[in-house]
Structure formats: structure tokens, C-alpha cells
Amino acid sequence: MSIVEAILLTIVTASTPLLIAALGELVTERSGVLNLGVEGMMAMGAACGFAGAILFDSTLLGVLCGILAGGLTAALFAFAVLGLAANQVASGLALTIFGLGLSGLIGAPFIGARRDPITHLHIPGLTDLPLVGRLFFGQDAFVYASLLLCLGVGWFLFRTRKGLLLRAVGENQTSAHSLGLPVLRVRLLAILFGGACAGLAGAYLSLVYTRFWSPGMTSGRGWIAVALVVFAAWRPDWALFGAYLFGAATVLQLHAQAAAIGIPSQALSALPYLATIVALVVLSLGRRRDTGAPGSLGAPFVPDR
């Protein structure tokens, strides 16, 4: 395997969890809810996913545990911001702290355990092609699933009536309510979807990316997913681009550190974040006025009866 091929493969692995979590948050935000708890939900997904996989000795059941854990954590958030109309920013931050803490407790007994690598696609002939073979035809199921998810979210949001309903609720909750659209139900489902995606992304981290669990292993990826949604102007296709750009920056700085090119490692570690800021600035210069943000994003909704 050439070094270029190895780098490309790691980029895909690093980008996949970012893409999945960002797509979930994107749907949540399109419904008008800002959930800053992605990091916490992802941590829960990583811990519960890993615990489930060890206990049931099944990666599939582990993944389901991770999705469920993310969804349940999101349900807590939904109770606070929809049921009690609590401040979304504060609730999201609290959710992150809560998720990081509880996941540490759940994961503690599994420190030191390891999972075997999961199977990758293998199509004789195609997968064996030089350079691009494994890149396109030799990935694990999650990679293909994340790409399908991206297509699915785009199709749902812009081609279906249910997607229109979701965008309408996020765009103007007052109008949506006065038309009789079920604002709170739509938001509940969107929040749960976001939680499930974050849980899946977390499970991918512990079951595929590292194959072991350690406290705080999400290391800010949830926050990057939140930033990616803004970066992508709430569009799934741009989220795909953004996730891979950021994934590439993360991997390349590691290789740059290894190659000892004379730049302090701290500066290199900061590179992906720097890239995000630069990309955000460039993008916002281009569309100066319209960021594409849903009109009701972050506003609590309380219907009066």
C-alpha cells in the first residue's frame, strides 16, 4: 500500500463520524432547534456502543446501543427545550457536560478492552485496483451508510412534503403554528434523529476508528460537527464537502508532525481549526448577507391556547 493510499484511507475514516454527526445536527437545526449537546451525545454513543459490543459480542448490537444512547440523551434535551421551553444554548451546553460525565461512568469498566477490526467491502477485481481500489470499493459499511445518509437527508429535505414541513417549522415557527403545522412534534423527531446520528458517530469512533474506549475520546468532534453545519450553510452536500475537508486537515497535520517539517507540533494540531475559521470567513465573504440559517433557529416555541 502506498503512503498516498494510506493517507486517503485514513481521511475517509476520520471524516465519516464528522459527516454523520453533522447531518444529524443539520436536520435538528433545520427544524429550528440549536442542539449544542452533540459532543455529549456522541460521547454517550461511543461509550454505550462499545459497552454493548463487548457485552453482546456483536458490533451490530453495539452500534444499535450507541444509536439508542444518542437518541435517549437527545430525548432529555427535547424534554428541556420543547417540554419546558428552556433556553436551547444553555440546555445544549449542559447536555454536553452531562454526556461526557455519564459516558465516563459507563465506559470505565471497559477500559483496556479491544475490538477486532470490522469487515470491509471486498469486490474481487475492483477492490484490488491500484490506489483507488480500496478507497472506493474497500471501505467499511459505515462509510457507505454515511454517504447514503447524506443523499437521503438531501432528498428528504428538498424533495418530500415531510421535509418541506420540517423546513417550514424551522423557517418561521409562528407562521407554521398558525397554519396548524405540528411544530413541537416535528422538532421532537428532528432532535431524536440528531441524537441518533450523534450516537452512531460516537459508536463509529469507539468500534471502528480506535477499536478501544477511553474517556473523552470524542475530543471535540461533536463541536466540529456543530461548526460544520454553519460551514455547510445548512445544506447536506456542503456538509459532505466540509466533513472531508476537515477530516483531511486532521489527518494531514498528523503526517506533517510525523515528517518533522520543522513547524511546532502545537501549530500543526491547530491547523484543522484554523482551516475551519479560514473557510468560514471565505464563505461568509461570498454570501455576506444571507447565511441560509433557518429563521427560527434557537427560538423557544410556546403556543398559547
Binding site: R161, E171, S175, L181, G295
Partner: peptide, 17 residues
């Protein structure tokens, strides 16, 4: 105060109801 969605098209606005 119109119950319309600024960033949606006319057809989408009608479909929402």
C-alpha cells in the same frame, strides 16, 4: 402579518398548508 416562509418558494409556501 402574513404567515409566509421568506426563504421558501411560493409553491412551497402554498404546499405547507
Amino acid at each position: 402579518h402574513f404567515s409566509l416562509f421568506e426563504n421558501l418558494t411560493v409553491a412551497e409556501n402554498i404546499a405547507a398548508a
